[in-house]
């Protein structure tokens, strides 16, 4: 289960935002991923508290906080599974 502060962006993943969409390059695996707008927001702010991001998304997009939280957690877990997010050093 994804938790605040447990993960960070993988330093082996190069990325930049192009026209509002994050393009991630997994250098070791030789894969690229493109994120949609909300995914890009979550990726750019992955080091910030989840509840703060959920509040911002809920306000900016008019979506229920419960839905925004559920989607954000699912997204972050998929980023961990793909290796884009890795465990932060303790």
């Amino acid at each position: 289960m994804y938790e605040d502060g447990r993960y960070k962006r993988n330093p082996d993943v190069s990325w930049r935002v192009i026209e509002g969409q994050a393009v991630l390059v997994h250098n070791r695996e030789g894969e690229i991923e493109v994120l949609n707008e909300v995914g890009t927001y979550l990726w750019e702010h992955a080091d910030e508290p989840l509840e703060q991001l959920v509040g911002n998304i809920s306000r900016d997009y008019g979506v229920a906080p419960e839905e925004a939280r559920r989607d954000a957690l699912e997204f972050y877990e998929s980023m961990v599974a793909s290796g884009a997010l890795v465990a932060a050093e303790t």
């Binding site: 991923e33 493109v34 995914g39 989607d71 954000a72």
Partner: peptide, 17 residues
């Protein structure tokens, strides 16, 4: 004006050869 919400997702993925 509020933006349309889209569930956060990977919208494109490709293996680079």
């Amino acid at each position: 004006m509020q933006r349309a919400y889209e569930k956060p997702a990977v919208i494109y993925k490709e293996k680079i050869e």
